[in-house]
Amino acid sequence: MARVQRMLDACAELLDEGGYSELSTTRIAERAGVAIGSVYQFFPDKKAITQALGLRYLDLFSVRVGERLAERHFSRWTDAIDAVVDEYIDMHRNVPGFGSLHFGDVVDIRLLDGVADNNRIIALRLRELVTSVAGVEDSEELDRAIRVAVESADATLKLAFRHVPEGDQDLIEETKLLVRSYLERHFGSN
């Protein structure tokens, strides 16, 4: 629905301008050009709107990573890590609100799902992509390794963007190396 998309777009813009603490349903309604009642028709509060935005980002990230993986042939599946990190970086730099919200961790560690933390949800999505697109066999070991890789990448990418708005390129490259090396150690270089 176009109204909901306008509200989510307004939320993204406002997050970039003032962060979550400055966000309000009133400001979202004003920016989206809708009545405050329209906001409450779909979202009970600002957290619910940011949750919907975080889920939109997760879906967009999954689609874009899937496309990147499908368009290239990798001699080793762990080489696909660069494509995943590059997509995250591109979204951080170019998708309104993503750099401020990421996948919702700024608001709530369980924003994307009431039970699992945000990085767990991202790890599950990436595991699905790795098994479907790269043809890697699913296993508990793969699940654990991708969870560790996501947590590690999350920490180092936050560091890369902490003081450099476009991301410290050296730290971005270190993130890729860290995750690739870790996964290759567990699954070999093939």
Rank of each mutant, 00 (worst) to 15 (best):
M1T: 03
A2F: 01
L8N: 12
L8F: 08
E13R: 04
E13V: 03
L14R: 06
L15H: 08
L15I: 11
L15V: 10
G18N: 07
Y20M: 01
S21R: 14
S24H: 12
T25F: 04
T26W: 15
R31Y: 05
A32H: 05
G33Q: 05
S38L: 07
Y40M: 06
Y40C: 03
Y40N: 08
Q41G: 01
F43I: 09
K47P: 11
A48W: 00
Q51K: 13
Q51R: 15
R56Y: 04
Y57W: 11
L60C: 01
L60T: 05
L60G: 00
L60H: 02
F61G: 10
F61V: 14
F61N: 10
S62E: 14
V63M: 09
L69N: 03
A70H: 02
H73E: 15
T78G: 09
D79A: 00
A80E: 00
I81N: 01
V84H: 02
V85I: 14
V85D: 02
V85G: 02
D86Q: 13
Y88T: 07
M91S: 12
G97A: 03
G99R: 15
G99W: 11
G99F: 13
G99T: 11
L101R: 06
F103V: 14
F103G: 09
D108N: 15
I109D: 12
D113G: 01
D113C: 04
A116C: 00
N119E: 14
R125Y: 05
R125I: 03
V130N: 01
T131R: 09
T131W: 08
S132F: 01
A134C: 15
G135H: 11
E137C: 10
D138E: 15
S139Q: 07
E140K: 09
L142D: 07
D143C: 13
A145Y: 02
V150D: 07
S152V: 04
S152G: 15
A155W: 12
T156Y: 11
F161D: 01
R162Y: 06
I172M: 07
E173C: 04
E174N: 13
E174L: 15
K176N: 04
K176M: 03
V179T: 09
R180V: 06
S181H: 09
Y182F: 08
E184T: 04
R185C: 07
R185V: 07
H186V: 12
